[in-house]
């Protein structure tokens, strides 16, 4: 049951713009779980996760005056979250490039046949494969395949057109299959 006495997000935004830091803290408390949920799909390291989430809310704080209240605050914040995650992936890409396929060779032959494939092992395998993707492919695969968000929603979140999202998703799946095949061969 929701607390009817709790101020609406729009009121908290207005109070924050008037200089009330506690109002912004309340906004953060309300929405941090969703931001952490999305960001944790891209960064497993707690420090990186904390950095991304701080980046999201710092951006939100700086651009709060641009929030017009036409859409819910959480939708506005979700777009900032995806943008921050995408920026993180692009930065991280350079760091990850030195990791060789050989060091992460997995056996995917039995992935389909073995019904008892451990969930952690599957996650490890798919995370490795996803980590080898280009940042935009990684973003699309995570949003579309892991979080199962509709293409239209992904288009809204990323600012790309729906057809562009579909093309990128198709290419990302193709790349992912190729990475898994190479991993299997190595």
């Amino acid at each position: 049951m929701s607390d009817v006495s709790a101020p609406a997000d729009a009121s908290l935004v207005a109070a924050t713009l008037d200089g009330d830091d506690d109002a912004f803290a309340e906004l953060v408390r309300r929405h941090k779980r969703r931001v952490f949920g999305t960001a944790s799909r891209f960064a497993r390291d707690p420090h990186q996760l904390d950095d991304i989430c701080q980046d999201v809310f710092v951006r939100a704080f700086r651009h709060l005056a641009k929030f017009r209240g036409e859409a819910p605050f959480e939708h506005w914040l979700a777009r900032i979250t995806v943008s921050a995650c995408y920026d993180f992936l692009r930065k991280e890409r350079r760091v990850r490039e030195h990791v060789s396929l050989e060091t992460h060779a997995f056996d995917v032959r039995d992935a389909s046949a073995d019904a008892t494939l451990d969930a952690d092992r599957a996650r490890e395998l798919i995370e490795f494969a996803i980590s080898k993707l280009a940042p935009d492919e990684r973003l699309i695969i995570t949003l579309a395949e892991i979080e199962e968000r509709p293409m239209r929603e992904i288009a809204t979140l990323t600012g790309w057109s729906e057809s562009n999202v579909k093309i990128r998703a198709f290419r990302a799946r193709k790349s992912l299959k190729e990475i898994l095949r190479l991993s299997h061969e190595s």
Partner: peptide
């Protein structure tokens, strides 16, 4: 195979 992996990790 990919769908199976994604479904397990999801």
């Amino acid at each position: 195979t990919l769908d199976a992996l994604l479904a397990t990790a999801r």
